[in-house]
Design a binder for these strands. Structure first.
Length: 913
RNA sequence: GGGCGCGUAGCUCAGUGGUAGAGCACUACGUUGACAUCGUAGGGGUCACUGGUUCGAACCCAGUCGCGCCCA
């Protein structure tokens, strides 16, 4: 059955995907040749709640290109797929669903029942992205799909926790952490986003105790010396967060701030609760900012926590976990205070309501000194989007500073390479300043921390309750209710998916893995932690190369976001244009280190490319070109066929070089240019003439070559456009599917050595010149005309006569005649080694031809001037490499010849006019 | 404030010292049974600016302007 005129991606993709699946084409080790090495990529596991977005499409296209090529090269390939349990995100989705359906809430259900609901949800809806990745053509070994809460993976996570705990690298401590009041859990530094916000800076007056006063400067002379003072019995503190004032345990001034020097060591009385708090000297107070004195709330501010430690100020927590004020029954707060009734009414108020009320009280009670507009950054939870609260709680931490060393050294010493290299700086700057990593989360969905407590509060860290119980001598135990940060488990993705700690064959064969392909936004979250954890646990780098790709933006350069409504759904694009077009678009734009702007136009263009390949295959089929299993590209006889064989070899070499250096865009452009520009535009047109030649040997060879070239195109394109290539490959009976066929290994030097490259290049330029003149002289497209040869070097005479029919066909020439001189009314064509002309009596437009000649001549003369001056420059002659010198000389003489021809032609026209 | 990056054709972008490129868009013309999702030809650029290094700079260096991202 003949091929349709256009390629129907939709039906083909489904059929091909099913065929790959049926044959287990992507299984680990499929197509591996004995004696070759392994090649392993770990997919960055998408969230189980996730749907495929352009970032995933890009990320996985790149991985698939690497994986498919190496599978074709016969390596033992594993592309390990899986999904992340995504603690907060998943818990949020299920809680929302419960609320929407009017079902009992998480807390009403209780932990066990709620977790069962999450698992149910995962079974029902958690596989969506896998199906979407299959639509994209991702050739993961789906039979090995892993989930970060699978039994085996869970065991690995607990084992690592226990191991690090025993080594003292994980500890529990009461620390100030970033608290998300919406989800009511601690989050890590990385999950905090700084959001610039227009706010206020309030100045509050805290009265000095014991009748103290001081003189505050209010006027200065030209040299900035104070000349006028105000006697004050209060101290003005500036704050952006008045709602935390009830937790103040001190006021700090800069030790060298003259204004306040006399006050250091004295006390102020905190309004509303009448707590007596000291004035301390600390560098944290900035004399330039606000009033120069700053209230210290160690339990609700990271800087203040540090000041508290330095100056011995105790932290007082005045908030509930939802960031409402906690005053009543808060012994810590009440100790040493005489709390006013107004203050006690603040109990239970949300932090922002409390802020308003406190400012109002300050105003009415006369201790509001003033208020200024102030733009500052406010930390927000990256999931909840609410302001996070520094909050004092007991949490588990990884002592990251103790395990970071090897992760830094690996990259510094090149055992793991980050591409593009500028991201190494990002990596280093974070790791070199690493803080303890808060890994406990007050959630239910996740790996529950493997620590049990007895009634006295002693800790027993063990991989199972039974083990903990033994350690505790059978005392009744309760388990720590918290779960681990999701990134703690994804940090173990490389070893965890391969069956560690069991010595599985997969672990032995594929670890360390090869390349990690990921977005720059998770270098800290994931890449750095995988490095640290794998090195800490098994002592090896998890991969030798990290390819960091950029962000996919919309065509105007904006980040795709739901709120902007500019999100392009890759599945919609695939439906419309086919997965191959989407993949090729992404690959062709994958320049290292630069964001890519995706426009639908571009995808459409590559859809057309798929159609182009399809039609080239149609041509091949209609002309009965069948692949010859014994075909030897080095034995080809005819010039045109030698030429295309050489081009194929060059293309394969360039594609290999580009892919070896992760230049996916170069590889894609090379292929596009060859397939469309070389094979379709020129070779297919030449082949039509060869088929017509009537020489059975030439026809036979051309058929074999044409089929071979198409096959090479399919092979080389397959990693980029797997579906259309596989479909076309399957048109012929073959031993293997394309996905398992051998990647081209051509010796370019042997195949491009002949003179055919030069000969056909010359023929192509001649055809282009003739076409250009015809078009500009407005010769009707269908009209065949005579080509006159006036001068031509012997070598080119032979080239022309051997390929005359090609020129006749492609330039619409009826005959070739020799002539001694250029006739009048002829357009002149100067080519390397000779001069041709086209007699165009009655057709030629003298003005147009004059203009054409002048334009060419101008350009050439400009170049000649530049070349002459360069060759007249002693500096150039003395310093330029001989190669450049020689080329420049050659170029000048050939331009001189051309200029002479064109000038002569122009003179004739002008003499005539 | 610190760091990283970007500024090349109308648009989106390649281009690591030796003749400024591609795709799209635009204009004109449609011939040859693979393809109109096509073909042929054409127009279009002070490579942000200033200075330096060099025989030679889009490319290297310094500064300026504009834009983006990350960290504090």
């Amino acid at each position: 059955m003949a091929l349709e005129k256009t390629y129907d991606a939709g039906s083909v993709e489904r059929r091909i995907a099913a065929e790959w699946e049926k044959r287990g084409a992507f299984a680990a080790g499929a197509n591996a040749k004995s004696g070759t090495g392994s090649y392993c990529i770990m997919i960055p596991p998408p969230n189980v709640t996730g749907l495929l977005h352009m970032g995933h499409a890009f990320n996985n296209t790149i991985q698939d290109i690497l994986v498919r090529r190496n599978r074709m090269r016969g390596l033992d390939v594993l592309w390990q797929p899986g999904q992340d349990h995504a603690g907060i995100a998943t818990q949020m989705v299920v809680e929302r669903e419960l609320a929407e359906k009017g079902q009992p809430s998480r807390t009403e259900l209780g932990r066990e029942k709620f977790l069962q609901r999450v698992w149910d949800w995962k079974e029902e809806s958690g596989g969506a992205i896998i199906q979407q990745l299959k639509r994209l053509g991702a050739s993961c070994d789906w039979s090995r799909n892993r989930f970060t809460m699978d039994k085996g993976f869970h065991d690995a996570v607990l084992r690592v926790f226990v191991d690090l705990h025993r080594k003292g690298l994980i500890y529990r401590g009461k620390r100030l952490v970033n608290w998300d009041p919406h989800f009511e859990t601690a989050i890590s530094d990385l999950e905090v986003e700084q959001v610039e916000t227009d706010g206020k800076l309030w100045r509050l007056r805290y009265p000095l105790e014991n009748g103290e006063f001081y003189n505050h400067p209010v006027a200065w002379d030209d040299d900035g010396k104070p000349i006028e003072w105000q006697r004050r019995d209060y101290l003005v503190v500036a704050t952006t967060r008045p709602e935390t004032m009830l937790g103040d345990t001190g006021v700090a001034v800069h030790p060298e701030d003259e204004r306040y020097r006399s006050l250091i060591g004295k006390t102020v009385r905190l309004p509303l609760c009448n707590r007596s708090i000291p004035i301390v000297a600390d560098h944290h107070a900035d004399p330039e900012k606000g009033a120069g004195a700053v209230k210290i709330t160690p339990a609700h501010d990271f800087n203040d926590w540090e000041v508290g430690l330095r100056c011995g100020l105790k932290p007082i927590n005045i908030m509930h976990t939802d960031a409402s004020l906690k005053l009543t029954g808060n012994d810590e707060f009440l100790a040493g205070c005489e709390v006013s009734d107004e203050a006690l009414e603040l109990h239970g108020l949300d932090r922002y309501a409390a802020r308003d009320r406190i400012v109002q009280l300050a105003e009415t009670q006369g201790w509001l000194d003033g208020v200024d507009d102030d733009r500052h950054t406010v930390p927000h939870g990256d999931r909840s989007k609410v302001a996070v609260e520094p909050f004092l709680t007991d949490q588990w931490f990884v002592d990251a500073g103790k395990i970071v060393g090897p992760a830094i050294e690996s990259v510094r010493e090149g055992r793991t390479r980050i591409l593009p290299a500028q991201f190494e700086k990002t990596y280093f700057s974070w790791l070199e300043n690493i803080e303890p990593w808060c890994i406990s989360r007050q959630l239910w969905w996740g790996h529950q921390i493997p620590v049990w407590y007895d009634e006295e509060g002693n800790q027993y860290c063990a991989a199972s309750e039974a083990e903990a119980s033994t350690m505790a001598g059978g005392k009744p135990l309760t388990r720590d209710p918290d779960v681990l940060d999701t990134w703690f488990s994804s940090g173990l993705w490389p070893i965890g998916t391969l069956g560690w700690p069991q010595p599985t064959p997969e672990y032995n064969r594929y670890f360390p893995t090869d390349v990690l392909v990921t977005g720059f936004d998770i270098i800290f979250f994931w890449v750095a932690r995988m490095m640290m954890m794998q090195l800490a646990v098994v002592g090896k780098e998890p991969f030798h190369t990290v390819y960091v790709h950029a962000l996919v933006r919309d065509e105007f350069g904006r980040k795709m976001s739901k709120s902007l409504g500019n999100v392009i759904d890759p599945i919609e694009l695939i439906d419309k244009y086919g997965a191959d077009a989407v993949r090729f678009t992404l690959a062709s734009m994958a320049v290292m280190g630069r964001d890519l702007r995706l426009s639908e136009q571009r995808v459409k263009g590559y859809r057309n490319f798929a159609t182009k390949i399809w039609n080239a295959a149609r041509f091949v089929e209609l002309n009965e070109c069948r692949p010859d299993p014994d075909f030897d590209p080095s034995g080809v006889q005819s010039t045109v066929n030698q030429w295309i064989v050489g081009k194929v070899a060059d293309t394969a070499t360039s594609v290999d070089a580009a892919l070896a250096s992760y230049r996916f865009n170069d590889a894609a452009h090379t292929l596009y240019d060859f397939v469309w520009g070389g094979f379709c535009d020129w070779y297919v047109e030449f082949a039509k003439e060869l088929f017509r030649s009537g020489d059975p040997a030439v026809v036979e060879e051309t058929r074999s070559v044409t089929a071979w070239v198409l096959d090479q195109c399919l092979l080389l394109l397959h990693p980029f456009m797997p579906f259309v290539t596989e479909e076309l490959w399957g048109r012929e009976p073959r031993g293997k599917m394309l996905v398992h066929s051998d990647w081209p290994d051509l010796n370019a030097n042997a195949l491009t050595g002949s003179s055919s490259v030069k000969d056909i290049g010359w023929i192509i330029r001649l055809i282009e010149e003739i076409r250009s003149v015809r078009s500009q002289m407005r010769v009707p497209a269908g009209q065949r005309i005579t080509l006159l040869q006036t001068e031509l070097e012997d070598g080119f005479v032979r080239t022309l006569s051997a390929n005359k029919e090609l020129v006749f066909r492609l330039a619409r020439i009826s005959e070739l005649r020799m002539t001694a001189s250029v006739p009048t009314d002829a357009a002149v064509i100067a080519v390397e080694g000779g001069v041709f002309c086209l007699p165009l009596r009655g057709v030629i437009d003298v003005a147009a031809e004059t203009a054409r000649l002048e334009k060419s001549l101008n350009a050439i003369n400009g170049e000649i001037r530049a070349l002459r001056s360069r060759l007249a420059n002693p500096g150039f002659l003395n310093n330029a490499p001989s190669e450049v010198l020689r080329e420049t000389g050659l170029r000048l003489s050939s331009r001189d010849e051309e200029a002479a021809v064109l000038q002569a032609a122009l003179n004739r026209f002008q003499a005539k006019g």
